[in-house]
Design a protein around this nucleic acid. Structure first.
Length: 585
RNA sequence: CGGGGUGUAGCGCAGCCUGGCAGCGCACCGCGUUUGGGACGCGGUGGUCGGCGGUUCGAAUCCGCCCACCCCGACCA
């Protein structure tokens, strides 16, 4: 490609609204352009890089038996009603009517459609296992897209779906993906770790998320350096302290004027926060058939901990959880800041499993300015649910080995789910087993967003001058610059390089050397060749790798062979990063 | 949805407070000189000042409503 006619150029300054490196660089280097909130166009360079990433995905999916298909982006709503997700999913799914007035949805994922296909195509256990995948557009009307391509509303995802006759088959396909996903990330130059994750709206029994650890990430992970335990904070377990046994003391009401926070309460009474009970009001939405019901939830954790809304929502089997409004709290006679489970009516009470073990806590008295001391679970109040609803944090004890864990931010670059029969049962995707008995297909679903992966590759592979692409995802392998006195030889070299199948970006513009070098650094192709009067007088073409500082001169007649050898060496380096990762639940 | 912020040329910004010809740098076009790490001179092109309404002799500027975009939170397969 000649840069003189390339659609979309480089920018000297990044738009001010780009804050993280990958966003700034992808815009400045001319890879992406924004159309609206969370909606981007891919320019020629960006699209070529995405194509490389998607081809890597194809290779890895095909290697584990995947069959590529292509499913629609517009779905009749009926299918989503059949699985119930039409009712469960909120505004994140965009809905519209076709001209006949039928309800339609924009695809945010494809379990419904693939299961509908499976129920038509799969009849016998003899056909299983099967694995299908596609690379397709998803629309998720996220309430807050951010950080360029990291989090968008319209995106392309490689999603695959495994179909099996039994759990063992599912486990095998799940493990195959577990490794294939590491291969994909490694080949794209994105180091990732797998962590246990919440199954969320997908349903199912087991899930892993692949996290690229970086400060720009929006998930918080808990990592144990001693034993290797890793989990998303949403579900991370931790060893809770074992409180000393005490005689249960008599509950007393005490005046605590203007003390409406745990911090203030602990200071006022001069007790550790661990001796208090923290009350948090949330409103939960439950789906009952086609109806949505909202109920107030009163959750209690120890004062030194925070409520984990994912754990709480899972314990409640709630669809949604949000902070309760002041009116909702007042409606059941509770007083914010002085709320108490003692004598509370009109809310579902959920207490953390540490609370029943913690004697003589300070809790609210449901009266402004008053708290109770020596409140004890079981004696003074009961809960509908006792469960682990507290959030692990920096320093929390590892659930396996007890050592303090650390936290890190991460971007979710992929995930894998054991769905089981959640969708096949709902849609009647069944087959006949060896005994002629009808069984639901056992499914798994596995996704990687290609744009997000591109952004993470940019985030991981850049320096202060620009992008530094691994050759596997670089839009072009070679960046050829012609400077004064080298134009004719550069034209010839451009043709010779391309004739061998090398991918070449040729800067044939009439620009000053500084601009061309800076643009080459910004765009970040792995191999740079410069042809100029100076290089020719020194004996040929200047040869430089983007990730190294060294430059050297290669004779004109040797350049093509040298570039081919270097490309192959760089590809071999990438291939070496593909290593087997032991499976961990 | 809550909090904060920004909308003026392709990009980055000033002008707004205190109403009076719409500006600057970069980019772009022409000519010339230069050119191995973001050259220089001269001359040019490009704007419904986010939109609608109001106040006013006169609105980028003041007032109201709306929209878009960004950041934090809620949310997130």
């Amino acid at each position: 490609m000649k840069m003189s006619h390339m659609f979309g150029g480089t920018l000297r300054q990044a738009p001010t609204d780009a804050e993280i490196a990958s966003h700034q660089l992808l815009v400045r280097a001319g890879f992406i352009r924004q159309l609206g909130t969370g909606i981007y166009s891919l320019m020629p360079l960006g699209w070529r890089a995405i194509t490389k990433i998607e081809d890597i995905m194809r290779e890895e999916m095909n290697a584990i038996g995947g069959q590529e298909i292509y499913m629609p982006v517009v779905h009749p709503a009926d299918l989503w009603m059949e699985t119930g997700r039409w009712y469960q999913i909120g505004d994140e799914m965009s809905r519209f009517h076709d001209r006949k007035g039928h309800d339609m949805v924009l695809a945010m994922t494809h379990e419904e459609v693939v299961t509908d296909l499976a129920r038509r195509e799969v009849q016998s256990y003899k056909q299983l296992p099967m694995l299908v995948y596609h690379i397709q557009t998803k629309w998720r009307d996220d309430p807050r897209p951010r950080a360029g391509l990291i989090r968008v509303r319209e995106f392309t995802m490689k999603d695959s779906y495994s179909l099996d006759a039994d759990e063992a088959g599912l486990d095998q396909q799940y493990r195959a993906h577990y490794q294939a996903y590491f291969n994909i990330f490694n080949r794209c130059g994105v180091p990732a770790v797998a962590v246990g994750s919440d199954v969320g709206m997908m349903g199912g029994s087991l899930a892993h998320e692949y996290m690229y650890l970086c400060a720009a990430g929006e998930d918080t992970l808990l990592l144990c350096d001693s034993c290797g335990y890793r989990a998303n904070r949403q579900i991370a377990l931790f060893q809770k302290p074992t409180p000393e046994k005490e005689e249960l003391a008599t509950m007393e009401k005490i005046a605590t004027p203007n003390v409406a926070t745990i911090e203030g309460l602990a200071n006022f009474l001069n007790v550790p926060k661990a001796r208090t009970a923290k009350a948090v009001f949330l409103t939960a939405t439950f789906t009952e058939g086609e109806q949505e019901v909202q109920k107030l939830v009163f959750s209690v954790v120890r004062g030194d901990m925070d409520v984990n809304e994912t754990k709480l929502a899972n314990a409640l089997r709630a669809k949604e959880l949000r902070a309760a409004h002041a009116e909702e709290i007042a409606a059941i006679g509770a007083v914010a800041g002085y709320a108490s489970p003692v004598g509370l009516k009109g809310a579902i009470v959920v207490v953390d499993d540490l609370i029943p073990l913690s004697p003589n806590l300070v809790a609210g008295a449901n009266e402004a300015g008053y708290h109770y001391t020596n409140v004890n679970y079981g004696r003074d109040y009961q809960a509908e649910i006792v469960a682990d609803i507290a959030s692990a944090e920096e320093g929390s004890g590892c659930p396996r080995c007890g050592q303090p864990m650390r936290t890190s931010r991460g971007v979710e670059v992929g995930n894998i789910f054991k769905l089981g029969t959640r969708y096949s049962a709902a849609l009647g995707a069944t087959f006949l087993d060896e005994k002629g008995k009808e069984q639901p297909v056992i499914m798994g679903s596995y996704g990687i967003g290609s744009g997000r992966l591109l952004a993470c590759a940019a985030e991981e592979n850049h320096d202060d001058k620009g992008l530094v692409w691994p050759i596997s995802v670089a839009p072009y392998q070679v960046h050829l610059l012609s400077l004064r006195g080298g134009q004719a030889q550069a034209e010839t070299l451009y043709a010779d390089l391309q004739a061998t199948g090398l991918e070449v970006l040729f800067d044939d513009r009439e620009e000053s050397p500084g601009i061309k070098f800076n643009d080459a650094d910004l765009i970040g192709m792995p191999i740079r060749l410069t042809v100029s009067e100076r290089s020719l007088s020194e004996g040929g073409v200047e040869f430089k790798l983007r990730h190294e500082a060294d430059k050297r001169i290669v004779a004109l007649q040797d350049v093509v062979a040298e570039v081919l050898a270097t490309r192959d060496a760089l590809l071999a380096e990438i291939a070496q990063k593909v290593v087997t990762v032991p499976f961990e639940e």
